[in-house]
């Protein structure tokens, strides 16, 4: 339904997006996961025809939207990363204005406004100025505006940044409902692995402007199916111990965590004995040991050597 081919964007000399190929089928929920500056927002801006690609194409039902943006505009809802609202107006006034520029009016407009306010749970507070809303409420109205014209596909750019867990949960549930119950196609951008894991059928992982991996969660974690992760919690940090652990033959990667260390190693490499021995040597107290199957976070780590977030 929506597809990008070799999508590329350069700003002056910087390559923000580099040969990105992705597609969305009808009714799918697709995640775009990547750290700050990975090029997620730039990709989305090109898909929604706000900026022109340097190279490559975006097609909607086979038609190029780079050549003619109007083919997608009315089918597409975009939730920008920023709160794109008039802060000095009330939620209701914002919805009225944006509804009108989408050509809605009269009873239909009022019905739609009532409907989206209900979806985001802000019916009671629609007459308050947006600037007096909490961050979470502003985010919700930001989403409501994108739903007004009942788009077939909605693109959300980090709709949960900087808000409290309750609002976040509310938004996640809402997105899930739109996708599962209303059959809306969703492209969901985030740098929270848990969100994408929970919401999305398929996931693209981006870094430095490139898609570095894609597939279902199983396929992605399958990249690490031959590895296991050992999580070691210690009473405090032991830098010397870390160095020594890193030198164990089978350890593929070693990551310092808040209170201890994470080791990625081939399955069945039976490292635990060695690990305990070394801890003993450094008089380190082991609080807990855990052998885990890899998460998406670990996949990202494995592919880039960095964490998604600091």
């Amino acid at each position: 339904m929506l597809e990008t081919t070799n999508l590329k964007k350069t700003f002056k000399k910087d390559i923000a997006v580099n040969d990105v190929n992705l597609y969305l089928d009808k009714g799918e929920s697709v995640g775009l996961l990547g750290p700050n500056g990975a090029g997620k927002s730039t990709t989305i801006s090109m898909i929604s025809s706000l900026i022109k690609p340097t190279a490559g194409d975006v097609t909607w039902q086979g038609k190029s939207i780079v050549k003619d943006p109007s083919v997608i505009r009315l089918q597409l809802g975009v939730v920008p990363q920023e709160i794109a609202l008039y802060k000095e107006l009330t939620a209701n006034e914002n919805l009225k204005f944006f509804g009108r520029i989408y050509g809605l009016k009269g009873n239909l407009l009022n019905e739609r406004i009532a409907h989206v306010l209900d979806i985001v749970g802000l019916t009671e507070r629609k007459d308050e100025l947006v600037k007096n809303y909490s961050g979470g409420m502003q985010r919700r109205i930001n989403i409501a505006v994108a739903l007004l014209h009942e788009p077939e596909i909605i693109i959300m750019d980090e709709p949960t940044v900087g808000i409290d867990p309750q609002s976040r949960n509310y938004i996640l549930e809402m997105v899930q409902k739109l996708n599962r119950e209303n059959g809306m196609t969703v492209l969901y951008t985030s740098h929270y692995m848990e969100e994408v894991e929970r919401l999305c059928d398929r996931i693209y992982i981006m870094d430095h402007g490139k898609v570095i991996a894609s597939g279902t969660k199983q396929e992605l974690t399958g990249i690490l199916s031959n590895e296991e992760t050992i999580v070691l919690e210690l009473d405090r940090q032991y830098p010397q111990l870390l160095l020594q652990l890193a030198n164990i033959e089978n350890v593929l990667r070693i990551i310092e965590t808040e209170k201890g260390v994470k080791l990625i190693a081939p399955k069945k490499s039976r490292l635990l004995g060695k690990v305990f021995q070394m801890a003993e040597q450094h008089h380190a107290q082991i609080v807990s040991v855990n052998v885990q199957v890899p998460t998406l976070e670990d996949v990202f780590l494995h592919l880039t050597g960095r964490k998604l977030r600091d």
């Binding site: 929604s48 975009v78 794109a84 944006f98 520029i101 505006v145």
Partner: peptide, 13 residues
């Protein structure tokens, strides 16, 4: 800078 202009463009106006 509050990106509402983008939103107006998105409406196809």
């Amino acid at each position: 800078y509050q990106h509402v202009f983008d939103r107006i463009l998105l409406s196809g106006k």
